[in-house]
Computed example of a mutant assay.
Amino acid sequence: MEEEKKDPILETDAAAIRLAKTLSRAARFGALATLDPADGAPLATRVAVATDMDGTPLILVSGLSAHTRALAADPRCSLLVGEPGKGDPLAHPRLTIKARAEKLEAGTPEQAHAARRYLNRHPKGKLYADFPDFAFFRLVPESALLNGGFARAYRLTRQELLTDVPLQAFLDMEQRAVDHMNEDHADAVENYAAHFTGAGRGRWVLTGIDPEGIDLAKGDEVKRVFFEAPLRDAAEVRPALVAMAKMARGA
């Protein structure tokens, strides 16, 4: 009698979900896989990425690129994120998100806040974001595969990847809070990066706030900091940031 093979996929737990969200939120770029309309073959390209308020990946792409033409023909795609470090690249965590691409039409509220969040992460994108042949896309997750390292594979659902709370109030206040923290409390932002992520000190900036945490950047470095508990109301953002600042300063 043959021995039953062990399922290599582990049961998804809170730690796996946190790691997956960290990889997605902290990604600067990823490998985008599409289907070439010319022959139906897989096509992998590199794209710069950010995330929408709910965690959905965002890309800004030219209509002249092969992947944009592929998405127009078939919106099915996948995005691989997770940067390798020293040593074996396969020993480092990575996340593959299976998604459907949705083009955001210029002039809509959805495009406006997606553009704002993307350009906070990638300021140089302002040079070409308004070109008529460029467009923002949301890569709406359907499922994901997380490889956390050797023998640490997990499947995640869309619900496990995204933030599921009312977001409009957070969207309405986000940019004001980001600008205020960067202009008036740069020391606190630097302390967030140093204390909560162990990053080196320097000119860190806040690039995004969502109900689950904040995103920080210093040049090519990006860090994710989660709140102690997810926020349910935008009025909770200021007290949460103040509490984190006190904790980081005290340490």
Rank of each mutant, 00 (worst) to 15 (best):
residue 197 T to I: 01
residue 106 A to N: 12
residue 167 L to M: 10
residue 141 P to H: 10
residue 49 V to L: 02
residue 182 N to E: 07
residue 87 G to N: 03
residue 186 A to V: 06
residue 219 G to R: 12
residue 73 A to M: 11
residue 205 V to P: 07
residue 83 E to H: 04
residue 108 T to S: 04
residue 201 R to E: 13
residue 42 P to H: 06
residue 116 R to T: 11
residue 147 N to F: 00
residue 140 V to Q: 13
residue 183 E to R: 15
residue 5 K to S: 14
residue 229 A to F: 03
residue 248 A to L: 07
residue 74 D to Q: 10
residue 167 L to N: 09
residue 100 R to N: 10
residue 108 T to W: 05
residue 89 P to Y: 02
residue 120 N to S: 15
residue 230 P to T: 10
residue 56 T to K: 05
residue 224 R to Y: 14
residue 203 R to K: 14
residue 160 E to L: 04
residue 113 H to N: 14
residue 46 R to P: 01
residue 155 R to Q: 13
residue 25 R to S: 11
residue 224 R to I: 06
residue 200 G to E: 15
residue 247 M to N: 12
residue 48 A to H: 14
residue 77 C to S: 06
residue 207 T to S: 12
residue 65 S to G: 08
residue 234 A to D: 06
residue 33 A to M: 05
residue 19 L to N: 02
residue 125 G to L: 03
residue 233 D to R: 01
residue 80 L to I: 08
residue 110 E to V: 14
residue 50 A to T: 08
residue 158 R to W: 03
residue 208 G to P: 00
residue 237 V to R: 05
residue 125 G to P: 04
residue 30 G to A: 09
residue 250 G to W: 08
residue 117 R to A: 06
residue 57 P to G: 06
residue 184 D to G: 02
residue 209 I to F: 01
residue 70 A to R: 02
residue 22 T to L: 08
residue 86 K to H: 11
residue 118 Y to D: 10
residue 120 N to R: 15
residue 146 L to P: 07
residue 95 L to G: 04
residue 31 A to P: 12
residue 60 L to N: 12
residue 235 A to E: 15
residue 125 G to R: 01
residue 181 M to H: 08
residue 108 T to N: 01
residue 172 D to A: 15
residue 95 L to T: 10
residue 71 L to Y: 02
residue 229 A to K: 14
residue 9 I to Y: 12
residue 58 L to A: 10
residue 217 A to M: 07
residue 221 E to S: 14
residue 169 A to R: 08
residue 8 P to N: 11
residue 47 V to R: 06
residue 233 D to W: 02
residue 199 A to F: 03
residue 54 D to Q: 07
residue 82 G to M: 09
residue 91 A to E: 07
residue 198 G to W: 07
residue 236 E to W: 04
residue 241 L to F: 02
residue 98 K to R: 11
residue 96 T to K: 13
residue 44 A to W: 00
residue 33 A to E: 08
residue 227 F to R: 05
